[in-house]
Write a protein that binds this DNA or RNA. Structure first.
Lengths: 334, 334
DNA sequence: TATATATCTGGAAGGGCTTCCAATAAAATA
DNA sequence: TATTTTATTGGAAGCCCTTCCAGATATATA
């Protein structure tokens, strides 16, 4: 069934080492020999056996990417960014979806010891010190995206600054009662965005009032970054009646979508009764006019692969830490 | 660096064949021997080398999924559905993203000859007869999702019926001028949905009027299934002035989102001035109250993997063709 | 007790490739 | 022309497993 390098060698009338050499573009091959081999390959429609090659080379040309639940556009954009260079450099991409945090360890173990991949991209999840050490020890490159660890390459958003900018903008618009809808604080971005929110209040001389902070409920798959969670969080804020905030910074656009629905259900208008700024700039935000903090997802994905490939090929040695500052996109909700 | 089966054999004081047998749960292993081996594995933290195993077994435990540009939620939902059984059965998933149609062939070639994967899932793209034959000849299972070929397992939506139901509903609501915004007809679903639209008109005694049909522009990555394309298509429909349709069936929700924006910009109201029904029921449709035809994406993904795995293990032999009829979800736009 | 049968185990062969070493041929130099 | 040097080439060894065959041991049967 499968045509192997031996068949090619026989047809071309050369040794198998020679075939392998033209396959790998090694030098020291005479043009005539190369042509003979190429012709034979063409004739037999030969394609190298990926696993055999991987075994011999100790290199698989596969990268893995670990994402938490495919929740929305954030990851899609990232994936698009990641795909681009991967395809170009003839790598394959294996996808691990971690729905529950405890599964992360088993995926990391698999990736570490299975010798299936040449490198890994870990998205939006934090890496424990033990694993960071283990990756370094095994010399398996890993890069973090939307997460940070001092010991490995990381690309991350300045969440604190982003939240700060959004909150400050709301305050500077004249709002006195500026609330926040955040996700579960066990999510690092959520925790840090809260810090930014508080910092902005403080800088503007507003004391933090816990009744204006609502933490979205988590469900089995989202840590509170969901439409439903945003909806019910806003409902809770609206229960404050006349004392409700006149502006709300929301920790993700997807929650903001739910929150907007809740506001409309109360027959309140946006931004007149309540102004809103979200976070992420997912594709739908533009369609619904949602003001938000844009994260350069595509770019981060692209850069992450770039660094990962360089790391794999040993082209860089020093640690690479890059931070992105989210950009305020003003639309119609504030 | 890497601990191999030889190390385990040595530590356990057994032959390597024995180690392999306990790894693969073969029978004819005495409980004591098994324990010794298991202990050694534990002690060394041994994990089998995926590529070596794949080479020896001629089976990789990897499935590949080929998707056209990650455009939106349709594919996310599908991916979620696919992930579930894949994880459970310890397969890995490699993702190929086909942005341009001509790249499909090169991906298929790679998948066919590279021996990297045990099976493939092809989404929303049609398979040519030549490739269908080649897959069968090479005995590499492939299943189509949201697409159809008589020679391979297929899961598909009854697009014609779906479009028919949507259009008929609009007509039965009393609308006389029912338009359609479709995507490029080179996309099979788009072509077939148009047929359903026409069939409904005909059944209700309305003659098809080409000025009420607008084909969305395609951009480099979407065949017209995009927000921008829906927006400008609706703009064109609105240029008809008073003669414009009072109801429009739109071939995807994402286009409908753009179309709704166009309508609102003209200060027209939905559904009073123009009623709308989309197609897909993406996550945002509920948030914006869009009536639509729901496709069971998650379920299709799940079933596709199920069948694929059964096919790989030889548990089924006859061809599997399953069609899903989309369900009309009535919300606020009609 | 001798023999047949069932159970368990070791290890060679093989899966398809790369890489290295040695060998040969061709070209350059003395 | 004889001797180096250089450019090519063939093929064995090795990457890490699984599988099959044969041998060893234990158990059942005559």
């Amino acid at each position: 069934m499968g045509v192997t390098i031996y068949d090619v060698a026989k047809i071309a009338g050369v040794g198998l080492g020679t075939v392998s050499r033209v396959l790998n573009n090694s030098d020291h091959i005479s043009p005539e020999t190369r042509k003979k081999v190429l012709d034979a390959i063409e004739k037999l429609n030969y394609k190298p056996h990926a696993f055999a090659r991987g075994l011999a080379k100790q290199k698989t040309n596969i990268l893995s990417i670990i994402v938490p639940f495919f929740t929305g556009y954030f990851y899609i954009e990232l994936l698009k960014g990641i795909q681009k260079p991967i395809t170009k450099f003839e790598y394959d991409l294996v996808l691990y979806n971690v729905e529950k945090n405890n599964r992360l360890n088993s995926v990391l173990d698999k990736v570490l010891n299975g010798k299936l991949v040449d490198g890994v991209i870990l998205i939006s999840m934090s890496l424990s010190d033990e694993y960071a050490i283990e990756f370094n020890r095994q010399n398996l490159p890993i890069v973090l995206v939307d997460s940070y660890h001092p010991g490995v390459d990381s690309f991350f958003i300045e969440n604190k600054k982003g939240a700060y900018i959004a909150t400050k903008h709301l305050i500077d618009l004249g709002h006195k009662r500026v609330g926040m809808i955040d996700a579960q604080l066990k999510s690092t971005p959520a925790k840090i965005r809260l810090e930014g929110y508080k910092a902005a209040l403080k800088d503007r001389g507003i004391t933090f009032d816990s009744k204006y902070l609502v933490i979205s409920d988590s469900d089995e798959k989202s840590d509170g970054f969901s439409r439903e969670a945003g909806y019910s969080a806003m409902k809770r804020l609206l229960m404050l009646g006349e004392d409700r905030p006149t502006a709300v910074f929301i920790s993700s656009d997807i929650q903001a979508v739910g929150a907007m629905k809740a506001i409309r259900e109360e027959k309140l208008t946006i931004p007149d009764d309540i102004a809103i700024i979200g976070f992420d700039d997912i594709e739908f935000s533009e369609a619904i006019g949602l003001s938000t903090m844009r994260q350069p997802m595509f770019e981060m994905g692209e850069m992450a692969v770039d660094i990962l490939l360089k790391r794999i090929s040993g082209q860089i040695s020093s640690l690479f830490h890059k931070k992105y500052i989210p950009e305020l996109i003003i639309r119609e909700t504030c």
